[in-house]
Simulated assay, not measured.
Amino acid sequence: MNHPQGAASAIAARPKPWLLDLVLLGALWGASFLFMRIAAPEFGALPAAALRVGIAAVFLLPLMLLRGHGAALAQHWKPTLLIGVLNSGLPFAFFCFALLTINTGLAAVINATVPMFGALIAWAWFRERPSGSRMLGLVIGFAGVALLASRSAGLHAGATGDHAALWAVLACLAACLCYGVAASATRRHLGGVPPLATAAGSQLGATLFLALPALWFWPAQIPSLRAWLALLALGVACTGLAYILFFRLIERAGPARALTVTFLVPVFAVFYGAVFLGEHVTAWMLGCAAVIVCGVALSTGLVKLGAQKDARA
Rank of each mutant, 00 (worst) to 15 (best):
A233T: 02
L229Y: 06
G192N: 09
S184A: 15
L208V: 14
L190Q: 11
A206V: 03
G240K: 01
H189E: 12
L232M: 14
V193G: 05
W228P: 08
P219N: 12
C238F: 09
S224W: 10
A175H: 07
A164M: 12
C238T: 08
L210W: 09
A199V: 05
R226V: 09
G201V: 09
A220L: 09
R188T: 13
I244Q: 12
Q203H: 12
P194L: 06
L173V: 14
T186L: 05
A182L: 04
L190W: 08
L166A: 11
A185W: 14
V236I: 15
A237K: 00
A214V: 01
I250Q: 14
L212E: 01
W216A: 05
I244D: 02
R187S: 13
L210I: 05
L249N: 06
L249A: 10
R248D: 13
T186W: 06
Q221E: 15
A233F: 14
S184W: 00
W216G: 00
P219K: 04
A206S: 10
L212K: 00
L245V: 06
A237H: 08
L196H: 02
F217T: 14
A164V: 05
P255R: 07
F217W: 15
G240V: 02
L204G: 09
C178G: 11
R188E: 12
F246H: 09
G205K: 03
G180T: 10
P219R: 06
G192I: 11
P219S: 07
L177C: 13
S202R: 02
R248I: 01
A175S: 15
L249C: 12
I222H: 07
L225P: 00
A253V: 06
A174E: 10
G254M: 10
L234T: 01
A165W: 05
Y179E: 11
A199C: 05
L177S: 13
L231A: 10
F209G: 01
L173T: 12
A242I: 03
A253Q: 05
L190S: 04
L241W: 09
A256T: 14
G191D: 15
S184T: 15
R187K: 15
G180A: 11
Q203I: 00
A233M: 13
P213V: 04
Q203P: 00
Y243H: 14
Y179F: 14
